[in-house]
Amino acid sequence: MGKSVGYARVSTREQNLNTQIIALKQFVSEDMIVTDKATGANLDRIGYQSLKVGIGKLVKGDTLYIKSIDRLSRNKEQAKEELKYFQSIGVRVKVLDIPTTMVDIQNGKEWVIDMVNNILIEVLSSIAENERTTIKQRQAEGIQSMPIGIDGKRYSTKTKKPIGRPNITYPSNWIEIYNQWQAKQITATRAMQILGLKRNSFYKLANAYADKIQ
């Protein structure tokens, strides 16, 4: 029989872990609760990483208890990947705020655990996709609401600077190097080095220039 471990996290040192710890103590002993006071924006947290590496890492047959799914990560896509990771190594994740994950499974019916995990992962995938769509929509609406300058570009009302990446300009020796490349006197890689351009920028300018001279 595997071990049961709890994980609690708050974003800042000023926040209190007590509420999560009290809830987790109903299922695991306090000395088996791992904690972090760190942002949920990334996974590089000392406590959380100890669940994956070292003496206390979770292995097949273990159970991880968390109060809510965002304790793993505030990013739904990232949380989904973490659930898939634990599922792949045979660790069951029980989420106190999601009753279906808390059901006790009898021996021989482990397939129910996989079913619950798969449903949870699919739900998180759907939520993550909706969040991405909403963010993109809000960004587009925000840009559309910004004033347009005399140059036709939209400007931030806060910074007064134009929105978007600045246009790439042709280097002063562009025509010479471009012609050498077209004549196969130099490779594209060499042309990029001489012009000081990255691959995407080089081909973007090359395509635009080709259209221009046709």
Rank of each mutant, 00 (worst) to 15 (best):
N107C: 07
G108I: 11
K136Y: 09
I113A: 15
T134E: 14
Y65F: 09
V59L: 09
S88E: 08
S50T: 04
E77R: 07
K52S: 02
I127A: 12
A41V: 07
Q193H: 08
N200T: 13
T169C: 04
W174S: 04
G196D: 10
S73N: 05
G61D: 04
T63S: 02
V103Q: 12
P171G: 10
N75P: 03
K25R: 14
K57N: 12
I150C: 06
V5F: 07
R45A: 03
I55P: 00
S29A: 12
S88V: 05
A8S: 07
S73V: 06
E30L: 06
K109G: 11
V123W: 11
T39A: 12
Q180C: 03
V93C: 11
E77S: 00
T157P: 07
D211N: 09
A208Y: 00
E129Q: 12
A210Y: 02
I22E: 10
N173R: 02
K204L: 03
I69Y: 05
E14P: 08
V59M: 05
G6C: 12
K76V: 09
A208C: 07
G149P: 03
K52R: 12
Q193M: 02
V116I: 14
W111A: 11
Q182D: 03
R154E: 09
T159R: 06
K52G: 03
V95N: 09
Y209G: 03
Y170V: 05
T133H: 09
Y155F: 08
G149F: 00
P99Y: 11
I168A: 01
A41E: 06
